[in-house]
Amino acid sequence: MRLSVLASGSTGNAIYIENDEHTFLVDAGFSAKKLEGLMNGIDRSLKQVDGIFVTHEHSDHIKGIGVVARKYGIPIYANEKTWQAMDGHVGTIPLEQRFQFDMETVKSFGSLDVQSFAVSHDAVDPMFYIFHENGRKAVVITDTGYVSDRMKGFIRGADAFVFESNHDVSMLQMGRYPWSIKRRILSDVGHVSNEDAAVAISEVVEQKETRIYLSHLSKDNNMKDLARMSVSQTLETCGIRTGEFIHLYDTDAEKPTELITV
């Protein structure tokens, strides 16, 4: 498998994953024009995409779904409640491009198995995805208020994680957001902080080469260096030193990460 975080942040999210047979996106939270530019940044095109897996109906994850589906004829996969929530926000998607992907099930695309799992976020039925091929495992989990033991069971032992590290708690508490928004972000259906992400990561990584992409950073309440430092320091207090077999990588709201082999 090969993976790139095309872009990730408060304003939009899209992750690219491919193998020798198929090419997929997880979410399409940007305009079609922006997505094509991001794909060009890794020498790929939306014309190659075989499907888009939708995590939930928030605009920073589905903004481009409708236009991309219609323009390129790409199949869209989402669970029933997410389809219902998206209707009216993505325009008409032809019936032959609408596929249901139920919670906690697996769909196979040749040698690539795609597994869905539930998270805790303030959407109607949010779920994320695990990609399996030839004993390798890549996990995407970018919007959840906390990481439950059940989630950890699904994602444990991955070779690559696209993991939410949304905010620094102090920055959020001292920042300009109204208290209602702060309370939502800090809740069990909000977003995971840098420190909470690190604690969860410490409980799911194994002693092997593992790439962790810190994603969905808040534009107002986090910074790349701060997220990386906070996660690294918290991991170290949990007995895990980064740089040995656990490697942390930044993601960006405007440009893709290098396309790497998982």
Rank of each mutant, 00 (worst) to 15 (best):
S31A: 05
E206R: 03
L38K: 05
V67N: 12
L172T: 13
G157K: 05
L3A: 06
A198F: 00
N40M: 13
V124K: 02
T237N: 09
S8G: 01
E36P: 02
T261K: 11
H216D: 13
K107I: 13
N40H: 14
K224P: 06
I42C: 00
N221R: 02
G153K: 02
L172Q: 06
M86Y: 05
S187W: 04
F163M: 04
V204E: 03
Q207G: 02
D60T: 07
D220C: 09
E133M: 07
S230L: 07
N134V: 11
F30D: 06
G37S: 14
D149L: 03
G243K: 03
T11Q: 08
V124D: 10
L112Y: 11
R2K: 15
R2G: 04
G91S: 02
S193T: 02
R211F: 11
G37N: 15
V140I: 12
V192F: 01
V5I: 15
L95K: 14
D20Y: 02
S180C: 09
V49R: 07
S120F: 12
F161N: 03
N166Y: 15
V119S: 10
D102P: 02
D87F: 09
G157H: 10
E104M: 12
F99Y: 14
L46V: 15
D113R: 08
A85C: 10
I155C: 04
H216K: 09
G239L: 13
Y213Q: 08
S165D: 09
D149M: 08
V54I: 15
G41A: 12
N166Q: 11
N134E: 14
K34E: 14
T210S: 04
H167C: 12
I62M: 08
P94L: 03
W83E: 01
R184S: 14
A14Q: 04
T242N: 02
G135S: 08
L226D: 14
Q48K: 13
S45W: 03
H247W: 00
D50V: 06
A158F: 02
D125V: 07
A227G: 03
P256V: 06
V90H: 04
V68K: 00
F109N: 05
V189A: 04
D252A: 00
E203G: 04
F131P: 01
R136D: 01
V199G: 06
S10Q: 01
I201Q: 01
E18Y: 01
R70C: 06
W179S: 15
K255T: 13
M103A: 14
Q207A: 13
G110R: 02
D20P: 00
T23D: 08
D125L: 11
G239W: 08
S230F: 02
H56G: 13
D252Y: 12
K47G: 13
G12D: 06
S165G: 06
A69S: 11
A200R: 03
V140D: 11
R184D: 13
G243R: 04
G66A: 07
G64H: 01
D168Y: 00
I246Y: 03
E164R: 00
E206T: 10
S116H: 08
P178E: 06
Y77H: 01
T210E: 00
N19H: 04
A14K: 03
K63V: 14
S10T: 10
H121R: 05
H132G: 10
G12V: 05
K81L: 15
